[in-house]
């Protein structure tokens, strides 16, 4: 019985991929994609962002500094990694032998409405998805930076989706899938203990029995971050400039507590120290770390932040000039 169900689901997924492969939107998207293979296995796709031969890809799709991409089944294109954005784990690839084609290049969308229908270019072929939200609060390791994430939901288990570019039905690039949610529901409530785990197990057993099977929740950079990355990659030095003052912080009773201040960072130069508390920024009270992270993310390199700092029982005002995160290469 279960074998029959799995077979039917597999066939349904195959049908969806076949149907999408003949979709006019997909036909328009395909010339801007290169399939990235390694050892005969497709790891992902690179998206053309500049008709001169500059491509965007997720780091997880690229195994070596030089890689062969495939435009269609027979046309190999040699790609070299030109730049890496450590914060977002995105790569800029360049092809010296790329022949520009008419109407090529991908539009990067600035805004996507929740509920929009999407097409995900997975290694196994195009798959439909839905845009859920553009402002999930994301923290990306290893940098621990706050990064707004776009949540994208695929209605079936589609296998490998990491590094897959996502397009809207107008053919614009909505993001590149970088992560998928793992199913550790118990981790949401570590204090709940065994009863919560039992409930979660009952839930997953129910889903396994009655279906539908395997919805995938995936995350991509939000459109605002993606635009910043692409603009940085297309600049003269191919560098993405994420604003930073060089601090690590977490929630405090009031304001945010500085866990660490990086040496020689703008924050260190302004005299901030670990253990101090940021009470307000630019005259506005800082209540949660997310508020402060959003403020930092929204500022531009060179902006001045007026911070009110509490150290013990004393408070002082400091001015910090927003710099560039230096972990990117």
């Amino acid at each position: 019985m279960s074998f029959l169900a799995v077979s039917l689901l597999g066939l349904a997924a195959l049908d969806q991929t076949k149907a999408l492969a003949a979709d006019p939107v997909w036909e328009r998207i395909q010339p801007n994609l290169l399939r990235l293979d390694s050892g005969g296995v497709t790891l992902g796709h690179a998206v053309l962002i500049d008709p001169k031969g500059l491509f965007l890809a997720a780091r997880s799709s690229v195994s070596t500094p030089t890689i062969v991409g495939w435009a269609g089944p027979t046309r190999p294109v040699t790609l070299v990694v030109v730049a890496t954005d450590e914060t977002t784990q995105m790569l800029l690839l360049k092809s010296e032998d790329w022949v520009p084609q008419a109407n090529s290049g991908t539009r990067i969308l600035a805004q996507i409405e929740p509920g929009a229908r999407l097409i995900v270019a997975t290694p196994n072929g195009p798959v439909r998805a839905e845009f859920v939200s553009a402002d999930r609060i994301g923290v990306v390791r290893p940098s621990l930076r706050y990064t707004p994430l776009a949540e994208i939901r695929l209605e079936s288990a589609v296998g490998p989706v990491g590094g897959s570019p996502v397009f809207t039905e107008t053919g614009g690039l909505a993001g590149v899938l970088g992560a998928t949610l793992i199913g550790e529901r118990a981790s949401l409530a570590p204090s709940a203990g065994q009863p919560m785990k039992a409930a979660a197990e009952a839930d997953s057993a129910a889903t396994a029995l009655y279906g539908p099977q395997g919805m995938t929740v995936a995350y991509a950079l939000s459109p605002a971050v993606l635009q910043r990355v692409v603009l940085g990659f297309l600049s003269a030095d191919h560098k993405v400039r994420h604003p930073s003052i060089g601090v690590f912080f977490k929630a405090a009773t009031e304001g945010v507590l500085l866990e660490a201040v990086m040496p020689d960072s703008p924050a260190a130069r302004a005299g901030l120290k670990a253990g101090e508390v940021i009470v307000s920024a630019n005259g506005q009270a800082v209540r949660t770390p997310v508020e402060f992270a959003r403020l930092l993310f929204g500022s531009a390199v060179g902006d001045k932040l007026q911070l009110r700092i509490r150290s013990g029982k004393t408070e002082r005002e400091v001015e910090v000039i927003v710099g560039v995160q230096d972990s990117d290469s």
Binding site: T180, L181, S187, F248, A251, E259
Partner: peptide, 17 residues
């Protein structure tokens, strides 16, 4: 999936940014 693993944390206070 070939991507990174994402984990949800319901208590913002525990997260270092």
């Amino acid at each position: 999936t070939g991507g990174h693993q994402a984990v949800e944390v319901s208590r913002q206070a525990d997260v270092v940014f």
